[in-house]
Design a binder for these strands. Structure first.
Lengths: 220, 220
DNA sequence: TCCCGCCTCTCTCAAAAGGAGTAGATCCAC
DNA sequence: GTGGATCTACTCCTTTTGAGAGAGGCGGGA
């Protein structure tokens, strides 16, 4: 075989680096991700966002190959960012990265069109694999996330009204109180609560709230 | 002025660098912190721990100037690490770093002897300031943390028994169920629940659970 | 020793919650 | 337009919860 000319570098440099935007409200996490990604020859962090609004704007302007998104951010929630970015750019490749909070968020993001979902405690290699997969438009979910998504699909989903009632339930409101706030009768409130108990497979309202917290159906 | 000899570096290098151990179960966060600290001329990351056990062992072995500790870690909880390290090394300088979770954790760590407490969304400058303060044995708490600690001190604290009952309450158990699990009568369980409601200033058990979650008195 | 906090247990009574079933009004999709 | 889902509302009945008040035992600190 003829040897390669001396000018060729030992490591192959890809023609197009994967251009990445990082969106996370923790400076420490952004620095950590940036440090990991910038060590890779085929990746490049082109911008960082500290909240949801910034993330949306930066995506519009820079149109990166991948945006890594934290779910919980100030100003605009990660789910809202997914929705807005995909509305403007239907082929956007978004990778959700969050400290796991229950299957509801996973389900919502993936069903809205996010390409990948992973947890913040993932090892570096997995993070890189996820970004490469998403950049090639291949879906990515770690096995724990995938199994959660499957579990979630088997469960009955709550209606909008029920979610509203559940939120008040989680705040510790009584049926009477819920009825007042929603301008319905106490009987109707009880009907909704009963439906919630059935769907969440709970015996009491307190247990329902515990289940809701575990699944990420309500926020503190 | 006579110019410095060529051998002297332009930036003053302190005689003793602050030796730091990082303990956090997220590789990304460790990388981020390491990147920030290693940029400083007066700091040096000497080890990283991915769980509480490792953190305790590494502290024993390396005796760093400061250990930065995440509160939520596998195998051994951050509070337990604080307790164990301080038992073996009464002058250990520990800086708690966590995503804010309510005033209970703050209170417990600080009252156990942790020197500092800060939030993960803190800007880089604040993180560095906290580490320098703690390394000099000066307490550090960001203003939001400090005010939380003060708030907490004004509130009545629950007894051990009440905390046990509260945990079961948060899981959605009924009085009868709680009584069975704790081997007491239902009447006694009700007495405890009533005491909890009074101390947490809640009208119903569900509201009590909501308050407990906000304060970090119970874990999911 | 005496008091106090904690845990235990008891009682009564009213209010709230929960189980089961029925049903009218919309609205949307097939 | 028929069927299904959703929201609304009702009744009847049982169980659970919460308020109030009292009291004995036990351990530790003044």
């Amino acid at each position: 075989m003829s040897p390669a000319p001396a000018a060729v570098p030992p490591v192959a440099v890809p023609v197009h680096k994967i251009r990445v935007i990082l969106a996370d409200d923790h400076p420490v996490v952004r620095d950590g991700l940036a440090a990991i990604l910038n060590r890779q020859p085929d990746m490049e962090v082109v911008a960082e966002a500290a909240d949801g609004e910034e993330a949306t704007e930066l995506y519009d302007r820079l149109q990166p190959d991948v945006m890594v998104l934290d779910l919980r951010m100030p100003k605009r929630d990660g789910v809202a960012v997914v929705e807005m970015v995909l509305a403007a750019h239907p082929h956007a490749r978004l990778l959700i990265m969050t400290t796991y909070d229950g299957d509801e968020d996973i389900f919502r993001c993936l069903s809205q069109g996010a390409k990948g979902y992973m947890l913040k405690d993932a090892p570096r290699t997995e993070i890189l694999a996820a970004i490469r997969a998403v950049s090639e438009d291949r879906p990515y979910a770690s096995s724990s996330v995938a199994s959660k998504a499957l579990q979630r699909m088997a469960k009955p989903s709550l209606t909008q009204r029920e979610l509203g009632v559940l939120q008040l339930l989680a705040e510790g409101r009584s049926n009477k109180d819920i009825a007042r706030r929603l301008s319905i009768t106490e009987g109707t409130a009880k009907t909704h609560v009963k439906a919630i108990l059935t769907k969440l497979d709970a015996i009491s309202r307190t247990e329902a709230v515990a289940v809701a917290h575990k699944r990420g159906l309500v926020r503190l």
